[in-house]
Design a protein around this nucleic acid. Structure first.
Length: 103
DNA sequence: AACCTGACTTCGG
DNA sequence: TCCGAAGCCAGGT
């Protein structure tokens, strides 16, 4: 059985709207544990295929994709671009513009 | 049963 | 501002 925290993380992930992004820490914070960013990573790996999670809408705090080139980076970027998110020349996303701000 | 690892952040000095 | 340590925790070795 998943922990309460895990369930909350899943719930938060599913709530990220199309066209917005959230950071690992932000998801952890919204789920109740600001310091569990790494756990969010684990959950993404564990459930992104089983559950239908918008895993590509989660990026790091620097506004960059954390995946390595050749290991998903390109896929994630294309999925985000499809949702209308723009990358600058350094492949950075403007968080002030695209970061999800739950009400 | 330790020890390492990971698509990360935050904290304290 | 910079840097290391701590926090998170289940799954793999």
């Amino acid at each position: 059985m998943p922990t309460q925290f895990s369930e909350d993380v899943i719930r938060v992930l599913k709530a990220i709207p199309r066209g917005s992004v959230a950071t690992y820490g932000q998801v952890a914070r919204l789920a109740g544990n600001p310091r569990a960013a790494r756990q969010v990573v684990r959950l993404l790996n564990a459930y992104s295929s089983a559950e239908e999670l918008p895993w590509h809408r989660v990026i790091n705090k620097q506004g960059r994709i954390s995946l390595k080139r050749g290991s998903g980076y390109e896929l994630q970027k294309s999925l985000l671009v499809q949702e209308g998110i723009r990358f600058d020349k350094a492949d950075n996303i403007d968080l002030s513009k695209y970061q999800w701000r739950p009400e």
